[in-house]
Design a protein around this nucleic acid. Structure first.
Length: 149
DNA sequence: CGTTTGACTACGC
DNA sequence: CGCGTAGCCAAAC
């Protein structure tokens, strides 16, 4: 994968966003990446493909003791991404269950129930970020969006 | 100094 | 549901 233009500031931004995830709620690498605007000199498509991995890299470098709820970031399949059986995966699973997040028999959470909707519009605007893409992949998307005008 | 390997994701079988 | 693939950088081996 290739790395973000400025890994240091990118990581800090990722952690800042992760801090906004409420207890008992989870987000995904891709959803967090979708809030961070692509640099102007980067192809949007390429950015969309690679940025989730940058978020993963940022999470891997999460500093401890700064109140960053790293456990609330899982993959798009609703599963924990840390190596299965590793102490890290066990810890993440435990912390989430502690918050009331439930896993089914296949080790997956239900985004319909615990999926994050993202920070408030105000917070996003304040930080120059984009609205996150929804975690719920509905087989039946809203065909007709009520006109706002 | 050449290879391997990433806390990812969407998509096809 | 599980497995393989592309993406194509850079740090760790």
């Amino acid at each position: 994968m290739y790395n973000p233009p400025d890994p240091t500031s990118y990581n800090a931004l990722v952690w800042e966003i992760v801090k906004q995830i409420p207890e008992g709620i989870v987000s995904t690498y891709g959803q967090i990446a979708s809030m961070i605007p692509p640099p102007e000199d980067v192809d949007p498509d390429q950015y969309a493909r690679l940025s989730p991995r940058w978020v993963g890299t940022a999470m891997n470098a999460t500093p401890s003791g700064e109140g960053i709820p790293w456990q609330r970031v899982i993959n798009s399949q609703g599963k924990i991404s840390l190596p299965k059986g590793s102490s890290g995966a066990d810890e993440q699973h435990g912390l989430l269950e502690m918050e009331g997040v439930e896993f089914n028999s296949q080790g997956r959470v239900d985004f319909e129930i615990v999926g994050w909707e993202g920070p408030s519009e105000d917070w996003l605007t304040m930080h120059h970020l984009l609205p996150p893409r929804s975690l719920k992949r509905r087989s039946e998307p809203p065909a007709t969006q009520p006109s706002l005008f």
